[in-house]
């Protein structure tokens, strides 16, 4: 069928879609371009310079915030992924499980409810029970809202996998634990890996909850960036933003590639 008479085609769709992708990426590109501007004022271009990258990397408060974010994100990722893996195994593989549907909704609750409500709710809870440790507060809250992001890819992988391999292992007298370690775990690894990556990214990016729970010594990267934005134009900000955009780009690409690989060689 020639393109011209293909009734499934709508004129102007291609141009509109190109414009859409420009719209999606132009704002990020603007930040990246301005990060190389020597002028202190973002909007006024003077000349190309990488000096703001140097001063960003020497910024002690920024590095402290990055460290806090990394500590919280790594612990929350491990906790959330473990919880999600156990829940996914129980929900998909468990036999005679009651409350299956309710449990699945509970795991996904953080996706359904507005984050600001959860943020103030945990703030009140922590102040009632007198929890003072800033890092611990962040780890608990982050572990909770990262769980569904780890859960969904793991569940998808488990659902797409046939039981044959596990049954074969059992037929060959493998114990439940050996079957899990040598058969199930390697097979669901793509889902597990991308789930963990997404949980990590969500934790690193979180602003609303972290800002609500932030106290001295537990300022995360997004909370620090917010304070820079609030303080007015800080020329380092564009350099910091560019570094973070590139870092998320790499991590998200790895996570999404592994996830789609896993989906393609379905078993």
């Amino acid at each position: 069928m020639s393109t011209k008479h293909d009734v499934k085609r709508y004129p102007g769709l291609g141009a509109l879609s190109v414009a859409f992708f420009v719209y999606l990426y132009a704002p990020l590109l603007v930040v990246i371009i301005y990060s190389f501007n020597a002028n202190r004022i973002t909007g006024v271009w003077t000349e190309f310079s990488v000096k703001w990258y140097g001063s960003a990397l020497n910024n002690k408060a920024l590095m402290a915030a990055l460290e806090t974010s990394l500590i919280v994100a790594v612990i929350a990722t491990v906790v959330a992924t473990s919880i999600a893996l156990m829940a996914a195994l129980a929900i998909i593989r468990g036999k005679n499980v009651r409350f299956r549907k309710v449990s699945e909704t509970v795991v996904n609750l953080p996706l359904l409810l507005p984050e600001i409500v959860l943020a103030v709710a945990t703030l009140i809870l922590f102040s009632l029970i007198g929890l003072q440790n800033g890092l611990l507060k962040l780890v608990i809250a982050h572990s909770a809202f990262c769980t569904p992001f780890a859960f969904l890819p793991i569940r998808a992988r488990l659902q797409g996998m046939s039981l044959d391999f596990e049954e074969a292992a059992t037929d060959l007298y493998a114990t439940r634990w050996t079957t899990f370690r040598r058969v199930t775990l390697p097979l669901i690894f793509p889902g597990l890996f991308s789930g963990a990556m997404l949980a990590f990214l969500i934790s690193m990016d979180d602003f609303i909850t972290s800002n609500m729970l932030a106290s001295g010594g537990s300022t995360t990267l997004p909370v620090y960036i917010f304070s820079l934005i609030r303080a007015g134009t800080s020329p380092e900000l564009n350099a910091i933003a560019t570094l973070l955009i590139v870092a998320s780009l790499i991590l998200a690409t790895i996570a999404l590639t592994v996830a789609s690989r896993g989906a393609r060689d379905d078993i």
Binding site: A87, L89, I91, I140, A144, T147
Partner: peptide, 19 residues
Amino acid sequence: NLAYLGLLPSWLIMGFALL
């Protein structure tokens, strides 16, 4: 039933940090 043991951590964290 091991399944309930698997569900326990998710109920605990969602119960404590959410519900």
